[in-house]
Amino acid sequence: MNFILELVVSVFLLVGGIFILVGSIGLMRLPDFFMRLHAPTKATTLGMGGLLIASMILFTLREPGHISVHELLITLFLFITAPVSAHMMAKTALHQKLKMISRTRGQALVEPASQQMAPSGETVESGKS
C-alpha cells in the first residue's frame, strides 16, 4: 500500500516537474515574444497542477482520517489567473508593437489589434513583411 502510494505521488511529481522544465525551456528557446508566451502559460500551469495533486494525494493518504484538499485552492487560483495574465501580457506586447518572427502569418492584424479595432474587411493573409 505504502509503496503504491509513493509510486503514484512520484509519478505525479515527475510529470509536474517535466512540464515546468518544458515551460522554461520554451521560454528560453522560442524565437519571439508571442511564441514564448505559449510555453509558460500552458506547460508551467499544468506542471503546477501535477505537483499540487501529488501533494494532495500524499497528505491525504499518509495518515488515515486526515483529508488535505486545500492545495485545490492554489490549483484553481492558478488555472483561473494564468490565462488572464497571459492575455494581459499579450495585450502589452501588441501595444508595444513587439516584433514577430518574419514567417508569422497575419501580421497585418497587429495594427488594428493594438488599437482594439475590428480588422478592416476580411482577415488579410499577408505573410511576408
Binding site: F34, P83, A90, K91, L94, A113, M117, P119
Partner: peptide
C-alpha cells in the same frame, strides 16, 4: 471563451476588439 482559448491547443487570446 478567451480563457479557454488561452489554456488549450497552441493558442493564446491576445486582444478583444472594442466592439
Amino acid at each position: 471563451l478567451a480563457s479557454t482559448v488561452s489554456l488549450t491547443p497552441g493558442t493564446v487570446s491576445s486582444e478583444v476588439s472594442q466592439c
